[in-house]
Nucleic acid binder design. Structure first.
Lengths: 150, 150
DNA sequence: TCAGAACGTTGGCTTCACCAACGTTGGTAG
DNA sequence: CTACCAACGTTGGTGAAGCCAACGTTCTGA
C-alpha cells in the first residue's frame, strides 16, 4: 500500500464494504508477514488452531469449521503432514473419513503461531482503545452471525 | 460459505483480523454478485468511481487513489476502453502519462454501479442500526487512517 | 548535463475462494 | 436386502486480487 496515497474517492472511502475490504487487506498483510516467519500460510494456521482447540477431526469437519473448501483442505493437510505437524489416519469407525491429529511439533507450532497472531492484533488495533476494540469485535461478530445463521 | 458451519474455533472466532477477513469475504461475495450483473469486477468499479468523482487522471494517479498496482491498472483500463466506458489519450503536457477519461457510457455505468453498491451496503449492514453502522464506519476509518498515514 | 525518478507496459507469481466430477463408503426407505 | 442418496476425500481447474521485477521512455532537479 502506498503510504502517500492521495485521498481515495469519497464514493469508496465512505463505503463500508470498501472499508472492510481495505482493513482486511491490511490485516492480511500483517498476518502474512507474521506467518512468513513460520513458513506457513493462512490455511495452515486455521487448521492448526482448530485442531489445537478441539482435538482430532475429519477433513470435512475441519473445512466447515475453518471455512475452507474440502478440496483446499486436502492440499493444506498434505503440506502439514509433509512438515510433520499433523498426522492423517483412516477413521476405523467410518472408512470414508480421515482423522487428522496434531503431532507434538504441530501443537508447538500452533502455539507459536497463536502468539504471532496475538501480536498482530495489537499492531492492527493500535489506534483503538480497548473499549473500541470490543465494540469493533462485537459489530463484526453480529454481522457474521446474521449472514451465516441465515 | 457453508450456512451450516459448526462453531469455528474460538481462537479464530474472537480474533479481529479473522473477523475482518470473514466479513470482508462475505461483503466481497455480495459485491461480486452485484457487479456480475454489469459484467464488471472490483477493479473496474474503483476506477470508474474515481473518474466520476474527480475527473480525468493518469493511470498512476488512479492506481494510487484506488489502491491498485500500476500494472493492474493497465489491464483494467484496457478492459474499460474495450467496452467504450473510458478513453485513453496521451498527455500532451507530460508524454510519460496517459490521461484516462470517462465516456458518456462510462459515466452512466459508474452511476448504475454506485446504485448497486449502495444496495449491497444495505444488505450487508442489515443487522446493524444506523448508529451502529456509523460506529463501524468510524472505527474502520480510524484503523485505515492510522495504518496509511503511517 | 546528467543521474535519478516517474510513467506505462509486459510477464510472472502467490494466496484465497470456488466448482465440477469421480470412486468409495454409509445410512436409509422401500 | 436392496436401491438410492448423502457424505467423504481427491483431482483438476477457474478466477479475482494483490504483488514484484524489469524494460524503455520521458521528465526533473541537483
Amino acid at each position: 500500500m502506498d503510504a502517500t496515497a492521495p485521498q481515495s474517492p469519497a464514493g469508496l472511502r465512505t463505503t463500508p464494504s470498501w472499508l472492510l475490504n481495505q482493513a482486511a487487506t491490511h490485516a492480511g498483510r500483517l498476518i502474512s508477514a507474521g506467518f512468513a516467519v513460520h513458513d506457513l500460510r493462512g490455511y495452515h494456521y486455521r487448521l492448526l488452531a482448530a485442531l489445537a482447540e478441539s482435538g482430532p477431526a475429519s477433513q470435512a469437519d475441519l473445512g466447515r469449521r475453518c471455512a475452507i473448501d474440502r478440496s483446499d483442505v486436502v492440499a493444506a493437510v498434505n503440506d502439514l503432514t509433509g512438515r510433520g505437524l499433523v498426522v492423517r489416519a483412516p477413521d476405523p469407525a467410518d472408512r470414508r473419513r480421515n482423522v487428522i491429529s496434531l503431532t507434538e511439533a504441530g501443537a508447538d507450532e500452533a502455539h507459536r503461531m497463536a502468539d504471532t497472531v496475538a501480536r498482530v492484533q495489537d499492531d492492527l488495533l493500535a489506534p483503538l482503545s480497548s473499549a473500541e476494540r470490543d465494540q469493533l469485535t462485537r459489530l463484526l461478530t453480529r454481522l457474521l452471525e446474521h449472514h451465516s445463521g441465515h
